[in-house]
Amino acid sequence: MNPVRKQRLLVVIFIVLGVSLAVGLALFALQENVNYFYSPQQLQAGEAKLDQKIRVGGLVVPGSVKRDPQSLKVEFTITDQQATAVVRYEGILPDLFREGQGIIALGKLSANQVVEADEVLAKHDENYMPPEVQEALEKAGHPGRNTQASAQ
């Protein structure tokens, strides 16, 4: 083989290997930052992996909010009208958080099937419900509170 062709071949091989390595590292990094959405029914069915970042959404069950008077810890139950899931959170809840309203909790599922939330998001007005929560409620056979959001 001609030395010039051999050198060009080596350069092309190094470029292909470098691009492949960069793509592989990018995909690995993206995989670590993916948050999958689950409804309480899916959590109960065991679809979520333990210690994986997830989002879980539903309506806060009235009477389920328990606050620790000594700290900012709070525990509450959410439902999609088919199943329930317990969420634990330590921090200041959004101002619009209240019983009977749709929320999304971001966190990890622990071994005892409790969502250890790092962040809790609440709806922002009386007509809005997060699309994932609305879809989960509709799949469960409950129309939810927002028929306008699904039309948008």
Rank of each mutant, 00 (worst) to 15 (best):
D125G: 14
Q101M: 04
F37T: 04
L106Y: 02
F76N: 07
Q42C: 07
V19C: 11
Q152E: 14
S150C: 01
A140W: 02
T147M: 10
K73Y: 07
T147P: 09
V11Y: 07
P40I: 01
V87K: 05
S20Y: 13
R145A: 05
V87E: 04
Q52K: 14
Y128L: 13
M129V: 11
H142V: 00
Q134M: 08
V120G: 02
R55Q: 03
A26G: 08
H142T: 05
G46V: 13
L106T: 01
N127M: 09
G57E: 01
D95H: 09
Y36A: 09
Q148F: 12
L137W: 01
Q70M: 07
D51Q: 12
L106A: 01
E138H: 11
I103E: 02
L96K: 15
E132V: 06
R98N: 12
V65P: 02
K73F: 11
N35I: 05
V114H: 05
F97A: 11
R8D: 06
H124K: 03
L30N: 11
G107W: 04
V65T: 09
V4T: 15
E135S: 06
I103Y: 00
Q134W: 04
A151H: 08
V60N: 00
Q82T: 08
L10S: 10
Q82E: 02
M1V: 14
P130M: 06
G144H: 01
F28I: 09
R88H: 13
D118E: 12
V61N: 06
L9P: 02
A48G: 08
R5H: 12
V120I: 15
V87F: 02
H124L: 03
S39V: 10
V114W: 01
Q81E: 14
A29T: 14
Q7Y: 13
Q41S: 15
Q52D: 11
L109K: 09
R98L: 11
A111Q: 13
A151C: 03
G24K: 10
E75C: 01
A105H: 01
